[in-house]
Nucleic acid binder design. Structure first.
Lengths: 342, 342
DNA sequence: TTCCCCTGCTAAAACCATTTAGCAGTTGCA
DNA sequence: TGCAACTGCTAAATGGTTTTAGCAGGGGAA
């Protein structure tokens, strides 16, 4: 019952020409010598029959499947993750490619499976996205297709798309300074001594480097540096409450929005107002950043742009160097509340 | 330079047998009469060469590509979305399938594109996921592959996976009653009169029906029903603040967690404590629900289970009826704070 | 006239797997 | 002995496209 797919041969027959001619015309070859009349007839026949090329057959012949693989350790968890996917998806769509999404949980066995599955389907390229990546991630298989690392790096694959964390770190400090804050600043989320020898991630190290450099250049030092491994709201809450027992900061620089969220709660409970008593700045532009009152001023991860850049890089023929994307500054009301800010 | 792919012919040659034999052995045909020795030789040769079947070639012959399409209106936005994808991904992986993810933004043109792209790649089935779906969604193309609707329904495709919103609605009310609350309850997010003639979504209607039925059976009526179209925190905040100017509720039943988040802020600002003064219950188990203090007691959408169920349904040969999944009750501290609850 | 090039097109091979049809040799049974 | 059935295997067709090699016919130059 189900009608057979219409094939190139059907089109050719209807047009009264060979499949060779039909193929050449429909793929838009430039140097062909087929007549204008032939072109017209083939196009007419194709649209009349609703012809769509069979991608599997084409892939078999050309080794191009117009599809790419997006392999990541985690896909859910943060808004960051879906932003990356979303941007990549949009860019893939524009390039008329389709995207296979694969999740590995960071487990080597699943990583291998994922890469194999993608390669079996002759993808035109692979993106390795690191969502939580503490360290570099290396699936050790022969891959003869372009590879782009997204939000991570790899010794084997030089092309990567990264946020400019160093500059982002500097910007966070600069925002505080520009608001006239000149001391009594606390760093929430990291303490060099406590975490000596621990490796969190290359990205975070750069963020910290930017922060430290900017502070030093301004002749400032944090009055406290609070360490915790999981950057979740409850940690931010506990650390801030403990902090307030002994110190009265003028600003808290939080290493992500979730910590800032917890800090916000602790400050509110202590009857301190934001930003008048204590200013807050953080990173990521997580969903919750906009929910707070006042909204959190934050250095955003350019999720969608990164995903998009990865695909564009992957599909650009002779790409040789990766991309570093600026982290946009999202000003809300947690540093100062001038007119015009939410 | 790049080594040629290993083909079945290579394996057959090394094993000293025909490709027919190699194919039959590697695909594990049951009724074949090939010798144990032949089996051993072929498997040996395959693993020695690292043979991997070319999926495109296989798809061309068998019309099965071991891949499915996940087409949704939005992919980022909510945690809900990525939960669905994640569950679907896990189930697909277990079934050794690969998943194409496509986003349409709810635009008909992109919907058609997406379905075509998937069909061109001979997917073994399609999932249409509705993230925000206000109404039913129908891409009007001939699709001769199984289809499952996820979090939505369609007249054309009877198989769908849905949360049991009606029971969820009943549960929300029941939780309040069990906590000894017997009146002064406010419904936040909907007002039958204000929204007469508006169609939000079938799912939400069922949620409301469950709530209304449970209230009626308990002989109760809401002391206020507050309508707003966008269920975002700022709306919840504004409506609750306005409410508090004239009324003093004992509980607020919020139609989603974001509204509850806003209500929480307004209650805190008014100096009311949760749950002692005002109890809060809501829906979705959004990420923010666990961040609040106390945590939000909420009726969860079973994201991952739904995604998983959709794939399993899609891949089950003669599936004839869809699935309705229970909405788990996540008890935190916003209705009552007994020992043991967060 | 012969040779060469150009035009407009096509036959057939190639890509890599699955599957149908069938072959040669042995055994089982009457 | 004759015939059927079985065993263990293979040749060739098939799926839909791209691409290489080349064909027939006409025109221009030498």
């Amino acid at each position: 019952m189900a009608k057979k797919r219409v094939t190139l041969a059907d089109v050719a027959k209807l047009a009264g020409l060979s499949t060779t001619a039909a193929s050449m015309i429909l793929t838009g070859r430039p140097d062909t010598r087929l007549s204008a009349e032939a072109h017209a007839k083939v196009h007419e026949a194709a649209s009349q029959l609703g012809y769509r090329p069979n991608v599997a057959a084409r892939a078999l012949r050309t080794d191009k499947s117009r599809s790419i693989a997006f392999i990541s350790d985690y896909v859910a968890t943060t808004r960051f993750a879906s932003g990356l996917i979303r941007g990549a998806l949009a860019a893939a769509e524009e390039a008329r490619h389709v995207m296979l999404v694969l999740e590995t949980g960071g487990e080597p066995a699943r990583e291998i499976q994922a890469v194999q599955a993608a390669l079996d389907r002759q993808v035109d390229g692979l993106i390795f996205a690191a969502m939580r990546a503490r360290e570099v991630f290396v699936p050790d298989i022969v891959i003869n297709a372009p590879v782009v690392m997204l939000n991570g790096t790899s010794a084997r694959f030089p092309l990567s798309v990264l946020p400019d964390e160093y500059q982002g770190g500097r910007d966070a400090v600069r925002l505080l300074l520009e608001a006239g804050i000149s001391g009594d600043i606390v760093l929430l989320g990291h303490n060099a001594e406590d975490e000596a020898g621990l490796f969190r991630s290359e990205m975070i190290n750069r963020r910290l480097a930017g922060i430290k450099d900017a502070m030093r250049e301004a002749g400032l030092a944090f009055i406290a540096e609070l360490s915790c491994w999981n950057w979740e709201p409850d940690q931010g809450f506990d650390l801030t409450r403990k902090l307030l027992a002994t110190k009265r900061p003028r600003a808290i620089l939080c290493l992500n929005d979730r910590l800032a969220f917890g800090a916000h709660q602790a400050l509110s409970e202590a009857g301190l107002s934001i930003p008048e008593d204590v200013a807050l700045v953080s990173f990521d532009n997580d969903e919750i950043a906009s929910y707070l009152r006042p909204g959190l001023t934050t250095i955003a991860l350019p999720h969608e742009e990164m995903g998009r850049a990865a695909v564009e890089l992957l599909l650009r023929p002779g790409a040789t160097s990766g991309a570093t994307l600026a982290m946009p500054i999202i000003e809300r009301g947690s540093i100062r509340s001038p007119a015009g800010l939410i």
